[in-house]
């Protein structure tokens, strides 16, 4: 069992004393307890016990942080700090008018748009759309291929 579930040893002992089951059975009881506990904790925190997919199928910062906890083994705090920092650094770069290129994912560029005439769809009147600067994302071929084959 190791010390990973150290805090549950007490549960094992109590059960052992009270019910006097065999060792093997106790192990099963203990495992069930931990799983149930985890499920409960996750439910309280608004997460699914199954991984990062929650609230339908929308992945959020919290879900990304959760994946760092399970895949890289970082603490919850560090994970969410890293997720925030990555997108902050990317935003800072774009806010300076620079591009962010991530190989095998895609590239974010800023593009300047000229002034053009638009129309208020409700009233039909013509209004000038001011020149502006926007972010465009160009996905890499790898991402395109994976998204297309995954959604066939």
């Amino acid at each position: 069992m190791g010390c990973r579930f150290g805090s549950y040893v007490a549960v094992l002992r109590i059960r052992h004393k009270t019910y006097g089951h065999t060792r093997k059975f106790q192990y099963i009881v203990l495992t069930a307890k931990i799983t149930r506990h985890r499920f409960f904790v996750n439910a309280l925190r608004g997460r699914s016990s199954m991984g990062m997919q929650m609230s339908g199928n929308t992945l959020t910062r919290a879900g990304l942080a959760e994946s760092l906890v399970s895949e890289v083994g970082l603490s919850r705090q560090d994970s969410s700090d890293f997720v925030d920092r990555v997108f902050e650094l990317m935003s800072d770069e774009l806010a300076q008018g620079k591009s962010v290129k991530l190989s095998s994912f895609g590239a974010f560029h800023v593009r300047d748009k000229r002034q053009r005439m638009g129309r208020n769809p409700k009233t039909g009147e013509e209004v000038a759309i001011e020149p502006r600067r926007v972010v465009v994302f160009k996905s890499s071929q790898v991402l395109k291929d994976r998204v297309d084959s995954g959604n066939k």
Binding site: M52, Q53, T58, L59, T60, S67, M90, L102, V147, G150
Partner: peptide, 21 residues
């Protein structure tokens, strides 16, 4: 991991929402 998770979510038809970004 971050970009792999985003890719995986899109692969399975999901959305990825990063508030502010």
């Amino acid at each position: 991991s971050i970009f792999e998770e985003i890719t995986k979510a899109l692969e399975s038809g999901g959305r990825v929402e990063l508030r502010g970004f």
